[in-house]
Design a protein around this nucleic acid. Structure first.
Length: 234
DNA sequence: GCGACAG
DNA sequence: ATCTTGTCGC
């Protein structure tokens, strides 16, 4: 795997890497039975001169949705947050956490977009292709595209997310009176399959359990590290 | 040139 | 993403 797929020298190289990686995305259900669902997320500390990012990964048994494994890792981000280049900022830390995982999941839900990205390589697709594992993008807001029609207010309501005449994902309402989620293919999963998995992992909260638990894990890792820091004196 | 812009 | 407790509404 080319080094610049994770740490490009500049944005031009990052852009080229995304195009190359996007060509490797498999938008079809190419995976075995899913007994273990994974959830990944990253937490940031604001005003941190060191640009540290805390990655959290959780593994849940399906269909029970009980957490059976957790892992976390801290890395210094090589880039600030730039819309469209989130993967380069968070994937390295996620890979470090992945290595710490005692048991690997059969499919992972990522906090962010997959194919619903300007170059078809949101963080979910980025992570999926680099690890070559089934992945799904579960974003809380849109990056590109617009809903093709008004979204129903009932949980389960969904509408295609279109951009430039193409359907890149699905806008899905998982909870009444809560903003919808933006689901898209990450890798080795079809859009229909991605939406189905998110629904199967829904528990009444806005976020599906894998991503919800990953968010908690990432925050826990950050707080633990922060509280371990020696107090400033003088 | 201007506005939009995952986490 | 993050700063932050209680509070209003379903």
């Amino acid at each position: 795997m080319p080094e610049h797929w994770l740490n490009p020298p500049d944005l031009a190289a990052a852009r080229a890497a995304q195009v190359a990686l996007a060509a490797r995305v498999v938008a079809e259900d190419a995976h075995g039975p899913v007994r273990l669902l994974g959830g990944v997320d990253v937490s940031n500390t604001r005003f941190d001169p060191e640009n540290r990012v805390y990655a959290g990964i959780v593994v849940l048994r399906f269909p029970e949705l009980e957490v059976v494994a957790t892992a976390s890792a801290v890395r210094r981000a090589s880039l600030p947050y730039i819309p469209g280049f989130l993967g380069f900022r968070e994937v390295p830390a996620l890979l470090a956490a992945w290595e710490q995982l005692a048991v690997k999941p059969d499919l992972v839900m990522v906090d962010g977009h997959g194919l619903a990205h300007p170059r078809g390589l949101g963080i979910a697709a980025h992570l999926g292709v680099v690890l070559d594992i089934p992945s799904i993008g579960v974003a809380k807001s849109r990056l590109v595209g617009q809903p093709e029609a008004p979204l129903g207010e009932a949980p389960g309501a969904e509408v295609p997310l279109a951009w430039k005449g193409r359907v890149l994902g699905t806008v899905l309402r998982t909870r009444q009176r809560a903003n919808p989620l933006y689901i898209s293919v990450g890798h080795r999963v079809s859009l229909a399959g991605a939406v189905a998995w998110v629904k199967r992992a829904a528990t009444g909260y806005r976020l599906p359990e894998p991503t919800r638990q990953a968010h908690l894990a990432a925050n826990a890792a950050r707080r633990a590290a922060t509280m371990a820091m020696p107090p400033l004196t003088g």
